[in-house]
């Protein structure tokens, strides 16, 4: 699936991914995959290369043991992007709401929602690879 670099495309792209997967995984897994996908696609649209003429490619693979969602947006490899992501990054001081961050949770939500998050290179093109094991 190709997605235009436009936030208005998020809903339709997510609906398509969910439609492909709804018969394959339980509701909990589907909502985790949808959240990770939307967070990753939002990052690609907002922070990917500025060449807006290039669409973002989305690949979904349904295997016996896992679901694989990949996003290719023309970005260079970022092998350390998720190094510090995870539940610990969502901690905050409940007594200090004034300084509670309004953003910056996306990568951690991707890391928490999926079982594996890596980058892989195919013919010089980089893909964010997100894997959710089938339970």
């Amino acid at each position: 699936m190709l997605v235009r670099r436009d936030l208005a495309e998020l809903g339709q792209a997510a609906d398509q991914v969910c439609q492909w997967l709804e018969a394959e995984v339980d509701e909990d897994s589907l909502s985790c995959i949808e959240l990770a996908f939307v967070e990753a696609l939002t990052n690609s649209i907002l922070h990917g290369p500025l060449d807006t003429g290039t669409s973002i490619a989305v690949f979904v693979e349904i295997l016996d043991t896992q679901i694989v969602v990949e996003i290719e947006d023309g970005s260079p490899p970022m092998p350390t992007l998720f190094d510090n992501a995870g539940a610990h990054r969502l901690e905050f001081d409940i007594k200090d709401i004034e300084n509670l961050s309004e953003s910056g949770r996306g990568l951690s939500l991707i890391a928490i929602s999926m079982d594996e998050v890596t980058f892989r290179v195919i013919e010089d093109r980089v893909r964010l690879r997100m894997v959710r094991y089938r339970r």
């Binding site: 997510a14 949808e34 967070e39 309004e102 996306g106």
Partner: peptide, 12 residues
């Protein structure tokens, strides 16, 4: 469905 961007709006 809600993502972290919408959550950010509620936090604001």
């Amino acid at each position: 469905f809600m993502d972290s961007s919408a959550l950010g709006a509620l936090i604001a």
